[in-house]
Nucleic acid binder design. Structure first.
Length: 215
DNA sequence: GACCAGGCACATC
DNA sequence: GATGTGCATGGT
């Protein structure tokens, strides 16, 4: 990244923070629940994910061991509200399989990995792509990795900070090469972009009432 | 009834 | 490397 985008990125962050306030992400009670949510929310409304997680909790299945043991059939039935339930059941299974084989089922063991190493390993798990991997790294592991999603791309291109076809890695680099690694801030920043994307900056070029108007 | 939502894998060119 | 398609529910 040749140009210094730090001032603009910081200004956007502070503007969104002042407008929307702290978002207190990730909405989950445990690290493992963060990971389950990260997989279930793929291309899906969070409200639907909450229903699926509530079903899992009702059966006391929100643990690596429980997910590993439960039948694929029962798992997909319980997560049905989150959509793509057959695929997502496989993805939850592939993650717990990975956790079992690589770390003996120990999430703590997994979280002791270096960030770069863990990211590569997560990306090798079937069903975990860049956004899901980075959500796990940031929100479950507490590592300073910036999460990029559809809202991030839309808002940044809308405000002329990237091409609308920019790749995931390009957008992630934009943040990580211009901002100091700061878990708290990366956490809030991504959450705020999602919040803004949901409300006003979503897709309209005019973006009426957008708190980022003029940037 | 169309359209969208905090993606990803896979096929094809 | 870019582009297209299947996966599926629930809210607007």
């Amino acid at each position: 990244m040749k140009k210094n985008f730090a001032p603009r990125l910081l200004k956007i962050y502070h503007t969104l923070h002042a407008h929307y306030g702290p978002q207190h992400w990730w909405p989950a009670k445990s690290r493992f629940e963060v990971i389950v949510g990260a997989i279930l929310t793929q291309n899906t409304n969070w409200k639907n994910v909450e229903k699926a997680i509530a079903n899992l909790k009702a059966e006391d299945l929100v643990s690596p061991d429980a997910i590993h043991r439960v039948s694929r059939k029962k798992l997909s039935r319980l997560i049905r509200p989150s959509g793509y339930f057959n695929i997502k059941a496989d993805r939850l299974k592939s993650f717990t399989d990975f956790l079992m084989s690589e770390y003996g089922g120990s999430l703590k063991g997994m979280l002791r990995e270096k960030t770069v190493t863990l990211r590569e390993k997560l990306l090798s798990v079937k069903g975990i792509g860049p956004e899901t991997a980075d959500s796990i790294l940031l929100y479950a592991a507490g590592m300073p990795v910036f999460v990029v999603d559809a809202y991030t791309r839309r808002i940044l291109s809308r405000h002329g900070l990237c091409e609308d076809k920019a790749s995931y890695n390009q957008i992630q680099s934009l943040f990580m090469e211009n901002l100091k690694p700061d878990v708290r801030m990366f956490n809030e920043y991504h959450a705020l972009l999602v919040c803004a994307g949901k409300t006003q900056c979503a897709s309209t070029p005019a973006c009426p009432g957008c708190p980022l108007q003029g940037y």
